[in-house]
Amino acid sequence: MNVTRPLRKAALPALLTATALLALPGCGTSGDDGATGSGAGSTVTVRIPDPGNSGVLALGKKDGSLDKALGKVGAKVRWTGSAGPFAPAAQAMNADQLDIATGSITSGITSLAQRPGFKFFTAVAPDAAGEGILVRDGSGIESVADLVGRKVAVNQGGTGEYLLLKALAKAGIPADRVERVYLRPDQTAAVFNAGKVDAWAVWATYAVAEIGSGKARFVADGTAIGSDNYSLNAVRTDFAEQHPEVVKALYRYLHEASAEEKRDPAAYLNVFTDVGPTAVTGRAKEVQTGFTAQGGTVDPIGPEDITRFKGVAAFYAEQKVTRTEVDVAAHLLDIEKLT
């Protein structure tokens, strides 16, 4: 969903902003669990954040292919809110305001620590090329060691904080020797470009524009960091229990579409418009298509993935991001066994 080694790059933006949640039209506790009508002929409505201008869901929305795929199992999409961070999306699923969301394993772990009402059902392996620690050209920062005594922008408990802590741990640098500046990702670019922070631990959604500008680069990317930051699709638990065939149909669509996106990344950019703030143009377009081509596909969660999830959860507990080690395995669905 911005379904954007074996690497499976996420191409689906990660979910609802808190502001959007407050304004979700027609969203509240659904007495019929998202279904419309009654009886055997009723249609199941799947509530998914609007995908914006790029990615497999954007194209699926424009050409109707997603509704066609879901229509085979008696379902359709209701686009609601807008794409943004996973934490508020998790809250929306817990409140029965959303059925599907996308986020990283890192933000997922912190959300799982809060009495979750959702489970993860797909995995996209870490984006080794598109995430990392971003620095401005001319900053004098040439290695992770050069971050000592500096300020690094991160999103608290999510991908940014994980990437920074992981990079420091790999370099043998105590975490308290670098100042973490907690900022929302959508508010960080201006702070970073104004020089108010020295670096930004970030992922492709926000890194592409900065790298595309020619004024910033990764001092360490996901490969150098050794990132296990998977992208995951989550489903509201009650929805999965009541409509397993819809979840399976959605998985099949995302799997096939993400494979197509990997083969032809440009076809999934600027789906609705190639101008304005949502368009990816110029050098940034080249950067994005390169990241996507190096990425992977939406796949079922396998045993090797679970082992790596456990490693991330243990790392978060060691770093005091979570108070205890979160049991991620207890909140996973085997899509191939879902009935």
Rank of each mutant, 00 (worst) to 15 (best):
G64Y: 10
G28Y: 01
V3G: 14
L98I: 11
L70W: 02
A171Y: 06
I335P: 04
A101Y: 03
A87K: 04
R283T: 07
T102M: 12
D33M: 10
V124Q: 14
V328G: 03
G276F: 01
D96F: 03
Y253M: 09
D334Q: 07
G34P: 00
K166W: 00
K320P: 06
T159C: 08
T36F: 11
G34I: 05
R177Q: 15
A313C: 07
T122Q: 03
G55W: 11
G149P: 10
D99N: 13
A90C: 08
K72C: 06
A153H: 01
S227H: 08
A189P: 04
S143Y: 05
V56F: 00
N2I: 08
G295F: 03
D327P: 02
G71C: 05
G222H: 09
A317V: 02
A257H: 01
G108F: 05
V208C: 03
G81W: 00
L21M: 15
A171H: 05
T45M: 14
P116H: 02
R47E: 06
G290Y: 02
L66M: 07
G138L: 06
I141S: 09
G37P: 08
T188H: 01
G311D: 10
D228G: 09
A249H: 04
T307P: 00
Q97Y: 05
A329M: 11
K170N: 07
D274Q: 07
V247H: 01
V280P: 06
G226A: 05
V197Y: 05
L7N: 14
A317P: 00
T289C: 01
L147G: 10
V124T: 11
D32R: 14
A293C: 09
A58K: 03
V148K: 14
T36D: 15
D96T: 00
R177W: 04
I133T: 04
G282P: 04
A267V: 01
G103E: 06
A58S: 14
A207D: 03
A329H: 04
L134Y: 02
A20K: 08
G302V: 14
K9I: 12
S30C: 13
D127K: 09
S30N: 04
R5H: 12
V312S: 09
A123R: 08
S231W: 06
